[in-house]
């Protein structure tokens, strides 16, 4: 009892911090940008007292959309890590993101009569529903392929190796599809680094729909993910329908991945680092870790995009470069800590 109080306090503090961080990301995200808008004007635009399309049509949906993408990636990462009891599993390493990208591109190519420009159009700006569904199938396919190649979930090394192979092959296929006619190397490159530049209200709506679809079951399954941490045999002995459960978790996480890839391209490290960092603060309780990863992923990506669009303004950096620059060193630090302990 003496130990539980500080722990409960600590956990509440983590959530308070996450909410504060998210608020900061929202405020800064709206206040700063390529164009200088005085804070008073920002507030007036938000309240509808003053017309300012830069705030209401560009910045607000971009910040909110970035948060939804970050939340989707964070939760998907936490779900993958919990499902596979593997801290390296994430939408990126499991090949799901590449699979989603392949699915989206394939749809665009099928619809657009092999026009790569149309593919980019679809990826960056349109087709929210069908693109996400195709991406979903691609993500699911890639994840299952990774699992088959790795011979299950238990062996971390094989899992990462298989995920990297599946991801590379599918990225290669995606690039091939995109390069079908002109020399659009730059656009393909940009796509693989993620792009939030044109996230507008249609994109935000699409993301919201898919988050509303996939997030509640995942958040409600936190306790079941906890049970999986005791091992599959124990989970089965508790009567849990493991196959259906895994499929449900996989489908929900893949849907979240696909929704974010369809709207913003491939953005690495958010899904890996967010749950990883929060696990150090919150422990392994997925009832806490899943909502915390949603908040943390949202804040992380919103802040990363803020840096991407303000560091070199009015030019922009690819947001994936920023998340990688932020996430990479953090991940190295984690590895170094692990080695230090072992």
């Amino acid at each position: 009892m003496t130990l539980s109080l500080p722990l409960a306090l600590k956990r509440s503090l983590v959530f308070a911090w996450l909410l504060a961080l998210l608020s900061i990301a929202l405020v800064l995200g709206l206040a700063l940008g390529a164009v200088a808008v005085p804070p008073g004007d920002v507030v007036r635009a938000l309240l509808g007292l003053q017309e300012n399309p830069i705030i209401t049509e560009l910045r607000l949906p971009r910040v909110l959309g970035g948060m939804l993408v970050g939340a989707a990636l964070g939760v998907a990462g936490a779900a993958f890590q919990g499902l596979f009891r593997n801290p390296l599993a994430d939408p990126y390493l499991m090949g799901a993101a590449s699979g989603a990208a392949f699915g989206v591109t394939l749809l665009a190519v099928l619809l657009g009569g092999l026009s790569p420009a149309f593919a980019q159009h679809a990826v960056f700006q349109g087709l929210p529903l069908s693109a996400t569904l195709f991406g979903f199938l691609g993500a699911l396919f890639a994840t299952l392929l990774t699992l088959v190649l790795a011979g299950g979930v238990a062996r971390t090394g094989e899992l990462v190796l298989a995920g990297v192979v599946v991801g590379s092959v599918l990225t290669g296929l995606t690039t091939y599809l995109m390069l079908q006619d002109a020399d659009r190397v730059r656009a393909v490159f940009a796509y693989t680094l993620g792009n939030l530049a044109f996230l507008g209200w249609p994109g935000v709506r699409a993301l919201a729909v898919f988050l509303l679809l996939a997030l509640p079951p995942l958040l409600l399954l936190g306790r079941v993910l906890n049970a999986l941490q005791l091992g599959e045999e124990v989970a089965r002995s508790l009567g849990l329908p493991l196959n259906g459960l895994k499929l449900l978790l996989l489908a929900a996480a893949s849907l979240l991945t696909a929704a974010s890839v369809a709207q913003a391209g491939i953005i690495g490290f958010v899904g890996l680092v967010t749950p990883h960092a929060l696990r150090r603060l919150l422990g392994e309780d997925y009832r806490l870790l899943l909502p915390a990863s949603a908040l943390g992923g949202a804040a992380l990506l919103a802040l990363a995009d803020l840096l991407a669009r303000t560091l070199t303004r009015p030019a922009e950096l690819p947001v994936g470069v920023v998340t990688t620059l932020l996430g990479g060193p953090f991940f190295l630090y984690l590895l170094w800590r692990r080695r230090g302990r072992a």
Binding site: A34, V35, A190
Partner: peptide, 8 residues
Amino acid sequence: KIAPEFVV
């Protein structure tokens, strides 16, 4: 790579 809001 340019910020869309700059163009607007």
